[in-house]
């Protein structure tokens, strides 16, 4: 009985977080903000699902496998998000028009590699008008 309750609670927790992740991916304004929803909230939601299955089966092998999946997801989700964000910046995905700061502006050369630019080049403290990286 208590196992059923805990399993249901964990599944509902995970499903609500994954639904919020999908809603954020649909509704948020630009890609750098959308990645927050897709990676953080999605990873938390799927870890809730996997822990729910671990509680439901309650065997040593299943629990070990579930912990393995959770650790793997927590290790790889930030790496994948970092790769996608860097690729999006290199291909010039536009930022939200109300973004305030772009610390990487002018530090990528034409071939997409990170220059050793001077320290003060990047920060363009924005007024209301904002600016979109080209």
């Amino acid at each position: 009985m208590i196992t059923t309750v805990v399993t249901s609670a964990l599944m509902l927790f995970g499903a609500s977080f994954m639904f919020l992740a999908a809603l954020g991916v649909l509704r948020l304004p630009d890609i750098y903000i959308r990645m927050h929803a897709a990676t953080k909230s999605g990873t938390l939601g799927v870890s809730g699902m996997i822990l729910a299955s671990a509680v439901h089966f309650g065997e040593l092998g299943v629990t070990t496998r579930a912990v393995l999946i959770v650790v793997f997801l927590y290790l790889t989700a930030p790496v994948a998000a970092h790769f996608i964000g860097r690729a999006a910046y290199q291909t010039g995905a536009p930022m939200w028009d109300r973004s305030v700061v772009d610390e990487l502006r002018g530090r990528y050369n034409a071939k997409g590699a990170l220059d050793s630019a001077p320290e003060t080049s990047g920060v363009s403290s924005g007024s209301e008008g904002g600016d979109s990286s080209s």
Binding site: I31, T39, G42, V46, M49, I84, A88
Partner: peptide, 25 residues
Amino acid sequence: SMADRVVALDLISTLAVGMICVYAI
């Protein structure tokens, strides 16, 4: 942009992992 689609595909695979867990339960 293309990166938006990659983000969406990543989230779709995460959703598929969650669905597999629900189906296993």
